[in-house]
Amino acid sequence: MSAEVVVNVPVQARLLEKRRESPDTFTLTLESPPSISGGKFFFAPGQFNMLGVPGLGEVPISISGDPANPKKLVHTVRAVGNITEAITATHPGACLTVRGPFGAGWPVDQTRTGSKEIIVVAGGVGLPPLRPAIYHFLANPALYPVVTLLYGARNPLDLVFKRELEQWTKRSRMRVEITVDRAGSSGWLGRVGVVTNLIGQVKFNPDRVTALVCGPEIMLRYTLMELEKRGVGPANIYVSMERNMQCGTRFCGHCQWGPYFICKDGPVFRYDHIKDWFSLQEI
């Protein structure tokens, strides 16, 4: 990113399509607006936008679409507050505001030389920020011949991208393991238990694997523990962090986490860079 981007004002983007993923989560496809620096919208997997509703405010939302298809700008939004509720209540044809893309993304161009395996661990709506990276891995089989996705949600209803998960399961070079914390009375016949349980059960070579992790912070903690237990080095683990974010441009100060601004230095960090901070509470 250039050091010369003077920007404050969002652009409008028309909502083309809205798909319900779970009771409170929607995937919104926007017509791609110009990027923050004025040119064509281009994003790296793991980057986010500030999505806004005029008069209400903006929220940081990771881009969940395919980086190879920049004409459509896709976000998956869980309605948890007044702004995300207004965003997910927007009808196709209407406009949202977009500022972005911001932040450092997944290591899609820098996975370590010789790394032939990718393991993706996602919890709940932690999967959408990882999907652009998965698209990238699937589109580059020579570089990434083996991709494993471990995905967990609280219950079967909360699983997002269900149709796509089925498609991925059928692909020969992709292993997909899905689990839910509680099956309830849903008729779920799959695995039950937390996603971190799966890490000890799948086969991968810890010396050759690069791990990408996104989910609630408690799930991150246990995932990192399990990955390290399996012998994956912290330098080969990438993790997406979340903090309160109001501007995306490193000015508002809210997203500070130790010396880092999550919006600029993250949201994706290499685990060995942040390990010391990860162990501290209330920072």
Binding site: M1, S2, A3, E4, V5, V6, V7, N8, T249, R250, F251, K264
Partner: peptide
């Protein structure tokens, strides 16, 4: 804070 990037605050 405001002038050294990656973004510059125009205000």
């Amino acid at each position: 804070v405001f002038l050294t990037g990656p973004f510059i605050d125009p205000i």
